[in-house]
Design a protein around this nucleic acid. Structure first.
Length: 333
DNA sequence: CGCTTTTGACCCGCGC
DNA sequence: GCGCGGGTCAAAAGCG
């Protein structure tokens, strides 16, 4: 694991106040932070989200977001956080912070500008690994294994862009509209909580995500997405429907959180769920793809706490130490 | 029966 | 070179 990740996991996200206050700054500038002190209706917040959404969806791609952040794509990582000063969020999962982690690679710009391609590469790599690294390696495969090794060396660290965020939730695996298959679990050093590894079950989709609970704040779940979905939300979900997670008003808009109306559900959880989607599939939400029927059953969100977020901070990301954009996110009761 | 989860083993990169 | 830790594989078990 790279240092950035290590920092994410091992630095104290919630207690290193000084650090965060030094690094956090208004994401959209003083007048554009997500802050609804005057308790505006939800759609007002979605207007605020627009800024964020535009930021994410922008004109497609990581470079855009990178430049929006004010630094080039050669930067290792980009971070912003959502901050809720005191007021409780009436949502199952409270979004705490979001982090985009671009690949740590010499030519990250190319990855950023063609992340789909990168995803395919990764897929091929994985396939190659599967085929060429069986548990018991026949001798005739040895050469190809070496070749693969060399190839991998050459292409080393063609990592997928990563995108991490923290949520306040009782459950680890928050529903985000996609289907995931768990493929591993590891104990995390210095943490009593294991880290789970998930892969998108959609064919040829190489998106992965890691889910772990913060050992500093067990109520906080750290989710890290890696890769880019090359498909829309699955039509059916286990106990959920994409269209429920993403109301048509949201789906119809370009990308996430674009809907001016917001359907009256200004859901940080939706926001949470949409971030990777919007980020990776900018414009992918066009046409209200996830129809799925608007109302009916309540969203099948797992029960999560509504614990007020007090001092919420993004952790020290090491390489990002001088680049920690943030925004304030207040929610009226 | 098909899909998902569990879990031990393995691979790999990195620091010492 | 070795050990450590993160990430992945894949067989077996579990589940609906």
């Amino acid at each position: 694991m790279s240092e950035d990740q290590r920092d994410l996991y091992y630095h104290d996200p919630f207690h290193d106040d000084q650090r965060a206050s030094d690094t956090l700054f208004s994401f959209f500038g003083p007048n554009s932070t997500i802050r609804d002190d005057s308790s505006p209706p939800n759609h007002q917040r979605f207007h605020d989200y627009m800024g964020l959404s535009n930021f994410f969806t922008g004109s497609n791609g990581y470079n855009t977001s990178a430049t929006t952040f004010g630094y080039s794509s050669s930067s290792s990582q980009q971070v912003f956080s959502l901050q809720d000063d005191q007021n409780p969020m009436r949502v199952p999962g409270n979004l705490v912070g979001v982090t985009e982690m671009t690949p740590v690679t010499p030519n990250s710009s190319s990855v950023l500008s063609s992340s789909t391609e990168a995803a395919d590469d990764d897929h091929e790599l994985n396939e190659g690994k599967k085929e060429n690294q069986p548990k018991s390696v026949p001798e005739d495969v040895e050469d190809s294994k070496k070749a693969t090794k060399q190839k991998k060396k050459d292409e080393k660290k063609q990592r997928e862009p990563r995108f991490a965020f923290m949520t306040k939730s009782d459950i680890d695996h928050l529903e985000d509209g996609y289907r995931w298959r768990k493929y591993g679990q590891k104990a995390v050093k210095n943490s009593p909580y294991p880290r789970s590894y998930y892969r998108c079950t959609t064919q040829k989709c190489t998106v992965k995500k890691r889910v772990e609970r913060s050992y500093q704040d067990p109520t906080t779940v750290i989710t890290t997405y890696e890769g880019q979905h090359n498909h829309h939300l699955p039509a059916t979900l286990r106990g959920n429907v994409g269209g429920l997670l993403y109301p048509p008003s949201m789906m119809a808009a370009q990308g996430a959180m674009m809907g001016g109306s917001g359907g009256g559900s200004s859901f940080p959880h939706e926001f949470l769920a949409q971030i990777p989607h919007a980020f990776y599939n900018s414009g992918g939400g066009s046409g209200g793809g996830g129809g799925g029927g608007g109302g009916g059953r309540g969203m099948n969100y797992h029960q999560a706490t509504s614990t007020p977020l007090q001092q919420v901070q993004i952790p020290d990301y090491g390489l990002l130490q001088d680049m920690v954009p943030s925004m304030t996110f207040k929610h009226e009761p």
